[in-house]
Design a protein around this nucleic acid. Structure first.
Length: 228
DNA sequence: AATGCGGGGTT
DNA sequence: AACCCAGCATT
């Protein structure tokens, strides 16, 4: 029941085309970021709007430019800087544990996936981000947003938890298995934020109208509604 | 599998 | 007032 390669190709071409004229610009999408900047950016982005992170991004990195400065700080200072991001008490604790682990490991990331996931705060999503952005592998940034876009377009998952759903895992890997893997990943996140929003998706201006399962379903329901 | 974390913006 | 946001750790 997996979508044919042809459908995947069409989705890739369309989202890349859309991305060309609609990409969002963020500090963490600049070229030549350090591993520290890449990892911390992903931590800040957890359950937090990209715009919120962007607004407070420079203040955080000016105060804590590297693993050592973060490791040498106290929890209270980190909390104060994290306050505008939300989840600040929990993230301050975990960030410091992460910095400590990195310093103890000579500020190096292991190459292997199973070892990456042993580091504090490196869950399924951030491990994927590390593989994509640091090691340049074709790996999906599978979060609630990518899940929503893929499920609306290709059809819903079975399991409740995104991280363990085999259908979504397979589908997301197929979709970003492309020479422009990073661009497709960012394109899907931007598309999710700007068009395929959780609550009020902008189907009327969406480039996927003809082939999106979600739109076709809504469209048919709408026709039924007007028939009486 | 379910729950807590959290300020800030949107509906 | 309710909902949502580039998740993770703990139970």
């Amino acid at each position: 029941m997996e979508p044919p390669k042809k459908e995947i190709r069409l989705f890739q071409l369309t989202i890349l085309s859309w991305f060309k004229s609609n990409a969002r610009q963020f500090q963490w999408r600049a070229l030549g970021l350090s591993i520290y900047q890449i990892v911390i950016s992903e931590v800040l982005l957890q359950r937090t709007k990209a715009e919120t992170v962007s607004k407070n991004y420079d203040i955080f990195f000016k105060r804590y430019p590297d693993w050592n400065s973060l490791n040498n700080s106290n929890i209270c200072d980190i909390e104060n800087l994290l306050f505008p991001f939300g989840l600040y008490r929990q993230r301050a604790q975990r960030l410091k544990a992460l910095a400590k682990a990195m310093v103890e490991n000579n500020v190096l990331l292991p190459n292997e996936r199973s070892l990456i996931e042993k580091i504090p705060l490196m869950g399924q999503y951030i491990a994927n981000a590390v593989e994509l952005l640091v090691f340049k592998r074709n790996i999906p940034l599978l979060d609630v947003n990518m899940a929503r876009v893929l499920e609306r377009y290709f059809g819903p998952r079975k399991l409740k938890d995104i991280r363990f759903d085999p259908y979504l895992k397979f589908l997301s890997r197929e979709v970003v298995d492309h020479i422009k893997s990073k661009e497709i990943n960012w394109a899907i996140l931007d598309f999710a934020a700007l068009i395929c929003q959780s609550r009020k998706p902008k189907c009327p201006i969406c480039v996927f109208q003809k082939t999106c399962q979600y739109h076709l379903k809504i469209y048919n329901l709408d026709l039924d509604g007007h028939q009486e």
